[in-house]
Design a binder for these strands. Structure first.
Length: 429
RNA sequence: GGUGGGGUUCCCGAGUGGCCAAAGGGAUCAGACUGUAAAUCUGACGCGCAAGCUUCGGUGGUUCGAAUCCACCUCCCACCA
C-alpha cells in the first residue's frame, strides 16, 4: 500500500495535477503512506448540476480512492447559502433555501454515480455541511469559530483583494464570512472522520490554508491541503464552455452526444494534457498515444480516446454508444440509413429539433432553426453549397420541404457547414 | 461645480455636408485545403427576391441633401477642484 501512494503522488506530479501543496513533501508522503486516509473536497450547490469544471477535483478524489484512500465529498448545503467570494468580481445573489436543498440532492446523486461507495476499505462518503452548520447559533459560531480568525489577515487574502480594493463593488459581511464556514468544515471533518487533506481548485488555496490553521487551533491536528491547476485552453478562451454554454454533467442539460463532442473537439495542443487531467490512463500510455499520433500523419486518436473515456465515465456505456452513433450519422455516415427510432433518438439525445408543418420554405426554415441569421444569409449559404438536406447538398434556394423528401415521411436533417445541424420534424396534417 | 474630449453597424476604430450601409482590424459564418483540427487562401458579414428600406447616443432644427452643421437632452472619459 505504501508504494501505491508513493506512486500516486509521483503520478499526480507527472500529470501536472498539483498546483500547490501545503507543508513539507516528506510529512505529506509519510502520512499518506498508510492506506485509508480521508481526503475531502467541497462542492457548493450553485446550480442543479455539476459541470466539466468540477471534474478535476472530483476525479482527484477518485484517484485517491483508487490508491486506497477514502474520498469524502462535501456538498455545501450551508456554504451554498452564502456564496464563495474567492476571486469573484461582484457580490452574488443569494439562492432560496428550497432551491439550494434541491440542488444539494442532485449534486449528491451525480457524485455518487462517479465515486464508488462500495469499495470495502475506501468507500466514498458524501456529507452535507448543513448537517453541522445549519443548527449552529450565531453566538456559538462567533465565540467558538470566529475567535480564531484575524480580520487583519483575512483582508490581506489575494482572493478577496479585488473586492476590498474596489469600493464600488465591495463585499458583504456575508460573503466575507464564507472562509470561516469552509474552514470550520475542515475542522469538523477532521474531528468526525479524521479527515486530513482538503483538495480544491487553485482558487481555493486561501480557504484551504485557513482551514488548516483552524484545524490546528481547534483540534490540535496537523492537516494538509492541495490545490489543482486551473484548466486552460491554448487559444486563451475559457475552458468548459461551448457556444451553447456550460458543459454540464447532467444528461438532460448537456446530452451525452454534446458532451462527447465537447471532448472530441479538444485542440491538438491541449488534448494530451487533458488525457493526463481527465483520464485514468497511465502517463506511459498517454505518452504512447502521443507518439503514435505523431507518427501517423493522419487524424490523431487522442481526442477520440479522451471523449470515449469521459463519456463512458459520466454517461456510461449506453450514453457513449448513443453519442458515437449520432456522431457517426451526423459526420460520416449517411443520415438516410437511420431508422425512425434513431432519428427520434437524435432529438432526445440533444440534437436541435424543429417541428414544422409540411411544405415550408427552406430559407425560412434555416432562419427558424437558427442556422442562418436572415433569409438573405440563408440564400448565400445555399449558394455556397453549405446546406445539406439529409446528407445531400441543397441545389436551390427555392426548395420547399415536404414529406416527399423527408426520411420516413417525417424527418429532414439539415446540416449547415461542417458541424451545425438541425433535425426538422414535419407535422402530419 | 468649472473646462476639455467623446458616444459610429457584435467589438475596436476611421469617417466632419452628397461619391456612406458607412475605410481598416478583430470576432463570427461559409467555401477550398484538411482530421468534425491548426495554419493559409477566398468570400460573406443591417433588412429585403427586387425596387428599395431602416441604421451612426436621444429629440428637434438648418439644408435639395446630415453619421457629418445647429440647439437642447443624456451617458462616458480626462483635467481642474
Amino acid at each position: 500500500m505504501t508504494t501505491d501512494t508513493t506512486r500516486l503522488l509521483d503520478d499526480l506530479q507527472q500529470r501536472n495535477l498539483i498546483a500547490q501543496k501545503s507543508g513539507d513533501d516528506e510529512g505529506f508522503r509519510e502520512y499518506f503512506s498508510e492506506p485509508g486516509r480521508v481526503v475531502y473536497c467541497g462542492f457548493d450547490p450553485t446550480a442543479d448540476s455539476l459541470h466539466v469544471g468540477h471534474l478535476v477535483p472530483l476525479l482527484m478524489l477518485k484517484r485517491f480512492q483508487l490508491a486506497g484512500h477514502k474520498p469524502l465529498a462535501l456538498i455545501g448545503g450551508a456554504t451554498g447559502m452564502i456564496g464563495d467570494p474567492s476571486f469573484k468580481a461582484t457580490e452574488r445573489s443569494l439562492n432560496s433555501a428550497g432551491l439550494v436543498a434541491e440542488w444539494v440532492t442532485k449534486l449528491g446523486q451525480q457524485i455518487n454515480g462517479i465515486l464508488d461507495a462500495d469499495t470495502p476499505d475506501s468507500a466514498a462518503r458524501i456529507v452535507n455541511n448543513a448537517d453541522w452548520m445549519g443548527g449552529m447559533d450565531v453566538l456559538t459560531f462567533l465565540r467558538d469559530v470566529g475567535k480564531y480568525f484575524s480580520v487583519n489577515s483575512m483582508i490581506g487574502k489575494e482572493s478577496v483583494k479585488q473586492r476590498i480594493n474596489r469600493p464600488e463593488q465591495g463585499i458583504s459581511f456575508t460573503e466575507f464570512s464564507y472562509s470561516l464556514l469552509q474552514s470550520y468544515d475542515f475542522a469538523e471533518l477532521n474531528r468526525r472522520y479524521d479527515c486530513a487533506l482538503q483538495i480544491g481548485g487553485n482558487d481555493q488555496w486561501g480557504n484551504i490554508t485557513a482551514g488548516i490553521d483552524l484545524t490546528r487551533r481547534m483540534n490540535r491536528q496537523q492537516v494538509f491541503g492541495m490545490t489543482l491547476p486551473l484548466i486552460t485552453k491554448s487559444d486563451g478562451t475559457k475552458f468548459g464552455k461551448t457556444e451553447s454554454g456550460t458543459v454540464w454533467l447532467d444528461p438532460t442539460k448537456t446530452s451525452p452526444y454534446s458532451f462527447y463532442q465537447f471532448w472530441l473537439n479538444s485542440a491538438d495542443t491541449d488534448v494530451y494534457d487533458y488525457l493526463k487531467y481527465y483520464t485514468f490512463l497511465s502517463v506511459e500510455e498517454i505518452g504512447c498515444i502521443k507518439a503514435e499520433d505523431e507518427q501517423r500523419s493522419a487524424k490523431p486518436e487522442a481526442q477520440r480516446i479522451l471523449a470515449e473515456q469521459l463519456t463512458l465515465l459520466i454517461h456510461g456505456e449506453e450514453g457513449l454508444v448513443q453519442a458515437q452513433r449520432i456522431s457517426q450519422a451526423m459526420f460520416s455516415g449517411d443520415p438516410r440509413l437511420l431508422t425512425p427510432e434513431e432519428l427520434q433518438q437524435l432529438s432526445l439525445d440533444g440534437a436541435p429539433t424543429l417541428a414544422l408543418d409540411s411544405d415550408v420554405d427552406l430559407q425560412d426554415t434555416l432562419v427558424a432553426a437558427g442556422l442562418a441569421g436572415s433569409r438573405r444569409i440563408a440564400r448565400e449559404l445555399i449558394g455556397a453549397g453549405a446546406v445539406l438536406l439529409n446528407g445531400v447538398v441543397a441545389e436551390s434556394a427555392d426548395i420547399r420541404l415536404d414529406k416527399a423528401q423527408a426520411l420516413h415521411g417525417r424527418y429532414i436533417l439539415i446540416r449547415k457547414g461542417k458541424k451545425h445541424f438541425c433535425l426538422v420534424e414535419l407535422n402530419r396534417r
